[in-house]
Design a protein around this nucleic acid. Sequence first.
DNA 1: TAGATACCTTATAG
DNA 2: ACTATAAGGTATC
Length: 307
Amino acid sequence: MHRGTLSLPSVGPFDLQSTVESGQSFRWVREDGRTYEDDEAYGGDAWYATVVGGDEGADAPTTGVVRVRQIDDRLEWEASFDAEETLRRRLRLDDDLPAIRAATPDDPLLDAAFDRYWGLRLVRDPPFATLIAFICSAQMRIGRIHEMQRALEERFGESVTFDGVEYHAFPTPARLAEATEADLRDLGLGYRAPYVQRTAEMVAEGTAHPQEATDLAYEDAREYLTQFVGVGEKVADCVLLFSLGFVEAVPLDTWIRSTIEEYYPECDRGSYAETSRAIRERFGGQYAGYAQTYVFHHLRNGGGSAE
DNA sequence: TAGATACCTTATAG
DNA sequence: ACTATAAGGTATC
């Protein structure tokens, strides 16, 4: 058992709950077993766990389990290995949040979102698991996307025991590629089942790998990812933003589209590509994905003109 | 290239 | 109880 504490003034503002429960990551499981839709019962100091390794390859030299919780300005962790660097990377603790906000234009909506969830950070999740999770996300609620990922892990993921508790890594591409469409439909994936199987097969066979997009220019990277089955421009943007470090990416989902309609109508240019360019510019360019994630979380929790 | 439609499953509103 | 609708869209025509 390895343990450690990160003092938050050293990494700047941070809000663990907002970061891992804002619908950007599906890799963290709350240890108290409460669902992600049960926010009102949240106590503020819950442990969250994730299994590192599995499909992560070189990104995570150590396979193991990490638990983390936030108590005031301390981030406590327990893990089966020395997890400090993993946490810094996965939770983007080195991002300069004040500088990012300073680079984002002021307007009433962005100010409200940043004020309300100040400390929310983007995540840097493993590419394959993120690709699969967002293929699953089509026409799904956040809670059910979580359920699907847990089902995939339990059915196809490697079992890991830590501190007397059994955890499951996310399945490897090879293991998911072996699954049949019927297997995946049984887990409740619906029409996404063949998308997941075929995409896993592409990665397992070496046809393509989401990691390959990292070296490309942003729009080329988005185009690259759409070769995977079940991956359109929106899902590609999610993978770029939440896994591959393209902090300028702004996934145009239903929430952001309605936001554009209501608050930034001049940014609606018809096509995804052009609207994407316009809203990215409106959100300040290089860190536009940060603004998107704050706004998404804010509006999904009742923020905006309705309040 | 832009627009319309089907698609699995679940939860919620009426 | 039962039907309609929507949920972080994509593939196909």
